[in-house]
């Protein structure tokens, strides 16, 4: 059984059709990259998966159970098992790093303080941020903030991570550190759905790349096939533009 199953997902913002009958299933330990032009619905698709936005039609299942099932709704379990990281980090500016990380475990999932902090420190150590537990977000570089945001999303030990253009706001020299974390996570078997404009990274890390165009997944293939031998003319056109922009 797939980890995540999306069937016939349709989503409107007002009159505008943003996701058009999208179906996609993601296996456990699989890393799927979503690519596509700006406005094609990549972020919206991610946000549907962890119930940040509501959708109009279709069904999304985690381990065969609808994300709207009472099992998830009544227990916050969905938020525990699916973590999301945003382009703009969205760390809580008035809380230090350790508070940011332990907030959800402590107050949503009732993990004792000491235990939550111990696990946070373990993650901070792992990602070489151990000196920054008491720092505030504004005292960190963008790359460090983004790494803290990833740790915050991992603090509830989720089985799925959703990453939405997590390097788009970073200076080039900071991107590497963040991407290497994602590679580590992949090695450890984390199931991930990644929106990225870094085609080189997508090629490296993805098991499968899906190309979204105007709310539809019009091509889906392993990176070596999709990048070197795209079948759909629109995919070809998109990749052509990326190459011209020097991003691949």
């Amino acid at each position: 059984m797939a980890k995540i199953t999306i069937q016939n997902l349709t989503k409107y913002f007002g009159e505008k059709l943003v996701l058009d009958n999208v179906s996609l299933s993601i296996e456990e330990h699989e890393v799927v990259c979503l690519i596509g032009a700006s406005g094609s619905g990549k972020s919206t698709l991610l946000r549907c998966i962890n119930d940040l936005v509501e959708f109009d039609k279709g069904i999304i299942e985690l381990d065969g159970v609808s994300i709207h099932d009472d099992k998830f709704y009544k227990t916050n379990e969905l938020y525990k098992r699916i973590g999301i990281v945003f382009q703009s980090y969205n760390l809580f500016a008035h809380m230090n790093v350790i508070k940011n990380i332990t907030l959800a475990p402590r107050y949503v999932h009732n993990v004792p303080k000491a235990e939550a902090e111990a696990y946070a420190m373990e993650l901070l150590n792992l990602f070489e941020l151990d000196g920054y537990a008491k720092s505030y977000p504004e005292q960190l570089s963008g790359g460090q903030q983004q790494r803290v945001a990833i740790i915050r999303a991992m603090a509830t030990r989720p089985d799925v991570l959703l990453l939405d253009e997590i390097t788009a706001a970073l200076d080039p020299e900071l991107i590497g550190g963040v991407l290497s974390i994602v590679k580590d996570l992949r090695e450890n078997g984390m199931t991930m759905v990644i929106v990225s404009h870094e085609m080189g990274f997508a090629r490296d890390v993805a098991d499968r790349v899906c190309f979204l165009d105007q709310g539809k997944i019009i091509e889906s293939a392993p990176p070596e096939n999709l990048f070197s031998n795209p079948e759909n003319p629109r995919t070809r056109q998109f990749l052509q533009r990326i190459i011209e922009a020097g991003r691949m």
């Binding site: 962890n50 940040l52 525990k80 973590g83 969205n90 809580f92 107050y107 949503v108 999932h109 509830t156």
Partner: peptide
């Protein structure tokens, strides 16, 4: 900040 709070289950 709201999106982050909601995604964490708050």
């Amino acid at each position: 900040q709201r999106a982050a709070a909601k995604s964490l289950g708050l």
